[in-house]
Structures are given as structure tokens and as C-alpha cells.
Amino acid sequence: MPLLSVKNLHAYYRTEAYGISRTVRAVDDVSFELQKNEIYGIAGESSCGKTTLIKVISGSIKPPLRIEGGTMTYTFDGRDVDIASVAPEVMRREIRWKEISYVMQGSMSILNPVRRVRRIFRHVVDTHQGIDDKRKFEALCRDHLKKLGLPPDILQAYPHQLSGGMKQRIAIALATIFRPSLIIADEPTTALDVVVQRGVLQLLKDIQAESSNTVLLVTHDMAVHANVADRVAIMYAGTIVEEGPTEVIFGAPQHPYTQHLIASLPVIGDKGTRSALPGAPPNLASPPSGCRFHPRCPMAKEICRRVVPSMIQLDTLHRAACHLVGEREEA
């Protein structure tokens, strides 16, 4: 039983200003499943729809963003929940933080800088699970921090006194305090230095290993996926183009976009020439016909311009959406 099953999801932004209406197809026919106890990575460049995808699956769907089709079903303790139809009150009380929590880029910087970390914890705990006993609350927080290897003294600190890496680790601590089934980490280390990034990712991995829940890690940095994720999905222009176990994605990528993404990464110790893809990611208000990657694809054929490629199952866990892969499989 997967934790989350997304089928044929379409999520569009529809806006209108001074008579010009626009439809941005940020998520266009996306299907995937999140299993329990895994780290699932989503990789993609800016405006490939990955941010919209997490917005939608975490249930924050506000106009102009609208679901135009597809289903998203969570299974929490054997109970099926369709996230798009959950009442906001239930969402706030029972699902956010408790089942799905969220860590984003620079999480702590949005918090009130004049409140001590303790009060921030207090606020989160109070809104989701009343703990009146002050000592009980203190014990809960201290235990939790200790388990994560963070000094419990930081409860005493103000956010501005802490380094960026420490703030991000506190954000992770906060997100995991109720042991949620799913932690969505949206570019959690993008603004951080490499040394700090390593510490933060380590923490995320440790928590996952310890509580066997699911982490959805979204980042454009392929090297982070290589080091952290169990499975990786590659998004391009609103669709998933390839998905597979990390070793397979990096070892034998099938989609030309994935291949290029991996081949272009510079590595210390190798000065071999790396090249960039020509062109730019498409505008999702008017995506190219057929395969959305065809204008930049070095191997594009006639069919790629006309027909949207369907997902081809290459292995139990490996699939890719590319006409060339389809032809190869048939042959």
C-alpha cells in the first residue's frame, strides 16, 4: 500500500489581467507513488512545475491554482484521504504537521525573529496537540532535539542568533516533532553552504532511517539526489520524464534530458569538457507540441514534434517517457 498515489494529475494556473487570460500548465498529467519508508527525490529546473506539484500534494490549492483533473490519495493508517477534498479545518488540525509536514528553503527566516525558539515550538505544538503541562512540553521538545543530536539549549535562543544551518535543522526538528508520515523538503539546502548542506541532509537521512517515514526531497541539485534519495523522478516542463532508483537514474539514464543533466555535472578531478543544453526551458503558458523536450533534444525526430510520448515501463521501478526509448524497447 503506497503512502500517496497520484494519478494523472493536472494542475493549472488560470489568470486574467486586462483581458489577457493565461493558462500555465504547471503540472500536466503527472502520476507517481510514494512508498512508505523511502526518500523520493524530485529533480527539475526552475519553472518545471516541481513547486506547484508539492503545493498541490500538500493540499494548499488556492486560486489561481486549480486542479483540472486526476486524483491524489493518501493512505494514513489504513484510511484513504483524498487531499483535494479535505476541509481546511481538518487539514489544519489533523493533517498538517501531524501527517504531512513541510521544510522549505530558509524555513526559519519567515519566523518571528524576536521570539525565542521555545515559543515557536510552543506555538506549533499548541495548535496541533494541546499540551497544557509546561514540564511535559519541555520534556517533549528536549527529548526530540536530543534525539536529533541538536543541543537542547537552542530552545533558549532567538532565531537571528543561529547560523543558517542550525536554523534549517531546527526547522526539520519542528517538522518532525509529531512524527509525520510524510516530510516534504522543498530545496531545503539550496541557500546553504556545502558543509552545512551536508549536515542538514545527514540529519534528514537520520530521521528518516530512524522513524521509517517518507521524505519527498525536491531540489534542482542532482548531486544531492545522488547522495540522499532512494528513488528519483526527473521533471521537465510540467511532466515527469523519467523515474527510477537512484543508482539506475545515474548509472543508466534513458531519457535524453536526464542523460544530459547528469553528463553536464562537473566533478572535481575531471576537467573533461561539459556542455550545456541548447535553448531554454519552455514557457508553460504555451508549451511545445508533442514531447515538450523536443526543441532542445539533440535526438529529436519527426514523431517527437507531433505525439506526446507515453510513459514506458522499463523495469519494475524504472520508467521513462520518450519515443526513442519506446522504439528501442520494441526492437
Binding site: M166, V194, R198, Q202, A223, A226, N227, T246, V267
Partner: peptide, 25 residues
């Protein structure tokens, strides 16, 4: 610094096992 740069190679995942000290402030 060099050790912490994530390498885009899944096989070397173990390289990060050793934990490192971060500055709190």
C-alpha cells in the same frame, strides 16, 4: 569543504557517513 561537495555518483554515498562539526552561531 572538498569532502562536503556532493558527488553526482550514487556509489559514493558512504562518504558522508562521518558527521562533521557545524558552527552554531
Amino acid at each position: 569543504l572538498k569532502e562536503s561537495v556532493p558527488q553526482p555518483i550514487p556509489e559514493v554515498k558512504g562518504a558522508w557517513a562521518k558527521s562533521i562539526a557545524l558552527s552554531t552561531m
